[in-house]
């Protein structure tokens, strides 16, 4: 039955743009918000591919402040498992973006 239908392929970006009614979420802005939760680590050390757990200053309290930052800046609720299963800042960024 599928053969009778015409399949239209929409580029992923188009779909994202037309469904995303909230303010666009900038990756570099997310990295900056992420870096703001650290007191001692220099902001230049944070990139999308940074494995945040390996940062010396990383702690359970900073994990909480990341959850709070995501709540305040993006209105998105993330859970312990979201943080635990993420390795890089980008992993978390993608989770937040998918819930906007």
């Amino acid at each position: 039955m599928y053969s009778q239908k015409r399949i239209i392929i929409i580029p992923e970006n188009t779909l994202l743009n037309c469904c995303n009614f909230t303010l666009p979420m900038e990756a570099d802005q997310f990295v900056k918000h992420f870096a703001d939760q650290f007191d001692e680590t220099d902001a230049s050390e944070f990139r999308l591919d940074t494995i945040f757990r390996n940062i010396e200053e990383w702690s359970s309290i900073i994990a909480l402040s990341i959850i709070a930052m995501v709540d305040e800046e993006y209105g998105v609720s993330i859970k312990g498992d979201d943080v635990r299963t993420s390795n890089t800042i980008q992993d978390l960024y993608e989770i937040v973006k998918s819930r906007l």
Binding site: S60, A63, L64, I67, A68, D71, S77, I78, K79, G80, D81, V83, R84
Partner: peptide, 12 residues
């Protein structure tokens, strides 16, 4: 106690 889950629950 899953501190992170409780935290994200309570602050909202």
């Amino acid at each position: 106690l899953n501190g992170m889950d409780v935290f994200s629950f309570a602050i909202t």
